[in-house]
Design a protein around this nucleic acid. Structure first.
Lengths: 340, 340
DNA sequence: CAAGTTTGCTCCATCGGTTGAGCATCGTTG
DNA sequence: CAACGATGCTCAACCGATGGAGCAAACTTG
């Protein structure tokens, strides 16, 4: 038996507890992880060990346990940003559902930086996560490859990958429904046959491309030609949308009365511009936002907000976690309109 | 030497690499963690090992490494919610600064639930974090005790504790400055000597208590008596603030023209109520918010938002991390007004 | 009361990486 | 050419928890 060290500050181990309880480390381990009945440890010994563990404030060393068991009970998630309610609720919901399964969630935010995503994925793999979820990742397939090489399962959320199961919103369907609503609401203010403006997102990004697709679908359905110059997908940051609008307004005297805004972050830039420029005078433009924020919903006139169904997305994600599915495939979750 | 297993899906270990490189696991380990010069491994062997490690997509097993070294290079943080920009920017900034120090940040969100806080702290301690930061924790001292028992350093952020170093905002000073501004802005609309309304937060919570203190200070300075019935600290959730306002408005015909709102989350409820009730008719009440949100800043009239200085708070926090300070003590970081 | 079963425990190898100690081999120096 | 240092590596113990195998004592059964 290893010598018990009870020097202060030093972590208590099962060897220390074994010494104090007059039992073997094996017995202590069995009692602490609940396998003591199977291992025929007596009720009284178990009680004694538990009491001593509690007195000593014992905390299991998960590094040692995980090393031996080859399971960490960690589940990792990579998220791009914490600056909006969508990723915030994904993070919160993910943690609740992970804990309900006895997994410890670790989430890390990678600032939409591809290198940081890879670095974070590597770190999580090194820490032996049992499963890795890449949310809104720039290059999810790269992460899947890294994970696979280390025998770690990976899943994609929000943006799809080709190598692992993916759960995303029905971006095209949602964008089409949203565009229909903006077209209807802005009808009186729009010139006949005048198309809407699309603002925000990155054109290379799958979600933005799909949403532009839905935007086109709804225009086609209404018999309105899309004006290619009115598709401003210059990035998600507020300033990028604002600048794109300023540039466009400099070239055109009058912008459409209806706007499709691709995220609340882009909405920030749109509203800054519309307030500052007074382009729409005393009227508010008709806005449809593919994203939801409660303050924007309360404060903005003529806005309709589409909410991605985060609980349903996470439910599907954890179905995949539970079923140990590894084959690629995309689950598209319907969106809904936020209550006004 | 242990047998090399290259069965597919199985993780590659240094023993596998050693077999492939015709070297010992010791050499491989030394090369991979950079101590190979000190250990007099030749340049050529090092290069060979690195190449093979790369080819095999080797990922270090941090559980094993951490176990042996008694350092995990993990730094944990507990955060209450992800539903506002304040905690969002704390999380993002914390991750950046942790990574800059070679630490891997793991953040977990505990929904302002005291039990969950303790459970999460225990889990992080079990995973051997090198340092644990409790942000906005209900009972930070409990967490410090748990951490101390396991020989883990802990720090408090946003809410102070009595057992570990704490970094918080200058709540009282900030609240006083904010109250002054609301008093000034609402002057024309307020009756002479009429006090402001305080909405949001939990009265038991240190920050809320301090902010009410600053609120009182500014009133005293202006020679205005605070009306105790006008201090509504019923919780942070939007509905709680809304209901408190509805109840109060049912009892009083006219509420103050100036409001001190304790967070953006409470602001949501305040604005819902003010829109729905039309209590202020066509005028917007004068609001000062102890918290910042860009959409609220753009969209709300007559609002002034106080911003907690997250970068400065984190800089101070990591000073404490770096200096290995463990003695209790509170660092109060000045707040600032958000640009309009 | 011998043989077999059950009870209550312990021994020891193991997970993968790290590190102090040590051991050949080679080149240099007196 | 013996002695010595430098070079380039390997051995084996160890971190803490786990679990298969096994062992002594108590109890049951024929």
């Amino acid at each position: 038996m290893k010598p018990a060290r009870t020097s202060p500050g030093r972590r208590t181990t099962i060897y220390d507890l074994a010494g104090l309880a007059g039992a073997s480390p094996t017995a202590v381990s069995a009692v602490l992880n609940g396998t003591w009945k199977k291992r025929r440890i007596s009720e009284s010994t178990a009680a004694r060990i538990l009491r001593i563990a509690d007195e000593q404030g014992y905390a299991l060393n998960m590094q040692a346990s995980g090393l031996r068991r080859e399971r960490s009970h960690l589940i990792g998630m990579i998220v791009p940003k914490y600056d909006n309610r969508y990723f915030g609720s994904i993070a919160e919901g993910f943690e609740v559902m992970a804990r309900a399964r006895g997994l410890f969630p670790i989430i890390t935010c990678t600032q939409r930086d591809p290198d940081l995503e890879i670095q974070a994925a590597r770190a999580m793999i090194s820490h032996q996560v049992d499963c890795l979820v890449a949310t809104g990742a720039t290059d999810p397939d790269r992460i899947t490859e890294l994970a696979r090489a280390a025998g770690v399962r990976s899943l994609n959320l929000d943006l799809p990958g080709r190598l692992a199961p993916s759960v995303i919103s029905d971006n095209r369907g949602g964008a089409k429904a949203l565009t229909r609503r903006i077209l209807a609401a802005s009808e009186p203010a729009r010139g006949a046959g005048e198309p809407l403006l699309f603002v925000g997102g990155r054109p290379g990004d799958h979600n933005t491309a799909e949403r532009i697709g839905g935007f086109r679908d709804a225009h086609a359905e209404a018999g309105i030609a899309v004006d290619e110059e009115l598709i401003l997908a210059a990035g998600y940051a507020p300033e990028k949308s604002r600048r794109a609008l300023e540039d466009l307004a400099a070239r055109r005297p009058r912008l459409p009365a209806g706007l499709f805004v691709n995220s609340t972050i882009s909405l920030e830039g749109v509203l800054q511009w519309s307030r500052a420029s007074r382009h729409y005078g005393n009227h508010a433009p008709h806005i449809g936002c593919f994203d939801w924020d409660p303050l924007a919903a309360v404060l903005t006139e003529n806005i309709v907000m589409l909410q991605q169904d985060v609980p349903a997305m996470l439910a599907r994600l954890f179905d995949l976690v539970d079923s140990e599915e590894t084959r690629p495939g995309v689950s598209e979750i319907p969106t809904r309109f936020a209550p006004v």
